[in-house]
Amino acid sequence: MSDDPTHVREFFGARAADWDSRFPDDGPAYAAAVADIGLRPGDAVLDAGCGTGRALPPLRAAVGPTGTVVGADLTPEMLAEATKAGREKDGALILADVAGLPVRDGALDAVFGAGLISHLADPERDLRELARVVRPGGRLALFHPIGRAALAARHGRQITDDDLRAEPNLRPMLARSGWDLVSYTDEDDRYLALAVRRSE
């Protein structure tokens, strides 16, 4: 299920221009997921694999003017669409792969990842990299605006037992990567796994 960065870049690069118009009703789901992270004014948060930056406005609203919001994506076309949509005013946009983030250890309070996990080249390694940049006790939110079954149906597939986002697979993978899964929701209209960065 995981992808190499070149394939991810090609896939999303070809779809960047009409991405937001294909999913126009996702805004409230993003805002609700951001609210569940528990961000506070002044916090620093990364939107990992930010795409066109749809999470940046609610993330900015959550951390306020004194907070730090960074959107990282490895697809230049997606970042260009985020800029075109004016979302760079809500957070700094950087071209980066989550496998190697230009962020110092423990600098962040939280990471938000929408539709991220199934596009990671090496999910366990990449989740460990996300853990590196988050302080102990900080949060990780893995989100999708629809659940696993609805997403599989959209693509004409069935859910399989090896789906990384399934709780029995995700929980131990997160644990091996420095995270403790604290809540898990997989419903037709929402997927949200929240994890807390363990103290070493």
Results as ranks from 00 to 15, higher is better:
1 M>P: 14
6 T>E: 13
9 R>Y: 00
9 R>A: 14
11 F>N: 02
11 F>M: 05
12 F>E: 02
13 G>K: 03
15 R>H: 12
16 A>C: 03
20 D>I: 03
20 D>P: 01
21 S>R: 12
22 R>G: 11
25 D>E: 09
25 D>V: 02
26 D>P: 05
29 A>Y: 05
29 A>W: 02
30 Y>K: 02
33 A>Q: 07
34 V>R: 04
35 A>R: 13
36 D>T: 00
37 I>D: 01
44 A>E: 01
47 D>C: 04
48 A>V: 05
49 G>C: 14
51 G>C: 06
52 T>C: 12
52 T>E: 08
54 R>V: 08
57 P>E: 06
58 P>D: 01
63 V>Y: 01
64 G>R: 03
65 P>S: 09
68 T>E: 09
69 V>P: 11
71 G>D: 10
71 G>R: 11
72 A>C: 12
77 E>T: 03
83 T>S: 14
84 K>R: 15
84 K>G: 05
84 K>Q: 07
85 A>S: 08
85 A>F: 02
87 R>V: 15
87 R>K: 13
89 K>Q: 15
91 G>N: 14
98 V>W: 01
100 G>E: 15
102 P>E: 09
103 V>H: 03
104 R>Q: 15
105 D>C: 10
105 D>W: 12
107 A>V: 06
110 A>H: 11
113 G>F: 10
115 G>V: 13
118 S>P: 11
118 S>D: 15
119 H>P: 10
121 A>V: 00
121 A>R: 00
123 P>M: 04
124 E>F: 00
124 E>T: 09
126 D>E: 13
132 R>A: 04
134 V>K: 01
135 R>G: 02
137 G>L: 06
138 G>F: 02
140 L>V: 13
143 F>W: 08
144 H>R: 06
146 I>G: 01
147 G>R: 03
148 R>S: 15
149 A>I: 09
149 A>W: 03
150 A>M: 08
150 A>F: 02
154 R>K: 14
154 R>L: 15
155 H>M: 07
159 I>R: 07
160 T>N: 02
160 T>L: 06
161 D>P: 12
163 D>N: 10
163 D>S: 05
163 D>A: 11
164 L>M: 05
166 A>F: 00
168 P>M: 04
169 N>P: 04
170 L>Q: 07
171 R>S: 13
173 M>Q: 13
179 W>V: 09
180 D>R: 10
180 D>M: 05
180 D>G: 04
181 L>S: 12
182 V>Q: 08
183 S>P: 01
185 T>Q: 06
185 T>F: 01
186 D>M: 07
187 E>K: 13
187 E>N: 06
190 R>L: 07
191 Y>M: 09
194 L>N: 05
194 L>V: 12
197 R>N: 14
198 R>G: 05
200 E>M: 04
200 E>I: 07
